[in-house]
Each structure stands twice: as C-alpha cells, then as structure tokens.
Amino acid sequence: MKKIISLTINDQSHEIAVEPNITLADMLRYELALTGTKKGCDTGDCGACTVIMDGDVVNSCLVLAIQANGSVIETIEGLSTDEGLSPLQEAFVEKGAIQCGFCSPGIIMSAKNLLDKNPNPTEDQIREGVSGNLCRCTGYQKIFEAIESQRS
C-alpha cells in the first residue's frame, strides 16, 4: 500500500505517495524524473546512484524511498547554480574527468560530500572518498586531479 512521505530534495519539499518496495533511486528517477542519478547495478556495487542523504553519501539503490521520509536529499540536479555549473562540476569538465559520464553524477556527489566535510583532503582521502564509485572509463586519474583542484 502506498504511503505518503515528505522529504526535501535539492531544497524543494516534496510530498509523494510511494509503495514501500520502491527504492530512493527509482523514486528519484521514475517518479520525479530526476534522472541525473544513475543506476549501474541496483545492488550497491557501483555507486552510480550516489546521493547525499542528511549530509552523508549513500547508495540510493539500497535505501527505500520510505526510509527517506523526513530526510534532506541532494542529487546532482541540485548542484549547478543559476550561474551554471558549480566549481566542482567545472573542474570535472576542465580536467577531463568525465568520459562516458555514467559514473559522473555519483562521483561528483561523493566528491562534493568529501569536500564539504574535509575541504583539504589528502590524496589518500580523495581515493577513499570515491572508493565506492566505480569508473570503468577514466582510470580515476583525472577524477583525482579534478577533486585536488578544488582543495581550499
């Protein structure tokens, strides 16, 4: 049976009726058309579905939508500003950290969360901070460079 949940997504409050068995990823993608959040496995292995939930990055394919009741969610769509790409997104473009781009929304969310919590991460912390986000195209090198360029 559907239940109405309320949550904040990218600074906007939503009330939405969801089945208990729908994941946060599927709700974002298929109910709210926030398709920037990707799915590469649906079982927590790839990180393409990474969103920030109440300040922490999570695999949205392993969170029930109903568990996000009352939560504050940030997705890739919330990152760019009125002026366009955020500096972090710009850095990904500039450094060539995006190839096919399927992992990119997830990786950028992980990177944002990392930099929010630790504005000056070491190389190891950067590696650690995207360790759940698989990228098959880039070999991560340019992803590291993009994140490094955003140290304060």
């Binding site: 927590g44 990180g47 990474t50 922490d56 990055v57 999570v58 695999n59 392993l62 969170v63 992980s110 650690e128 901070g129 995207v130 360790s131 759940g132 986000n133």
Partner: peptide
Amino acid sequence: GNHLIRNR
C-alpha cells in the same frame, strides 16, 4: 565495503 556502504 567502501565509503558509501559504510554510511549505511
């Protein structure tokens, strides 16, 4: 796991 899994 990894940084995402560890948050849950």
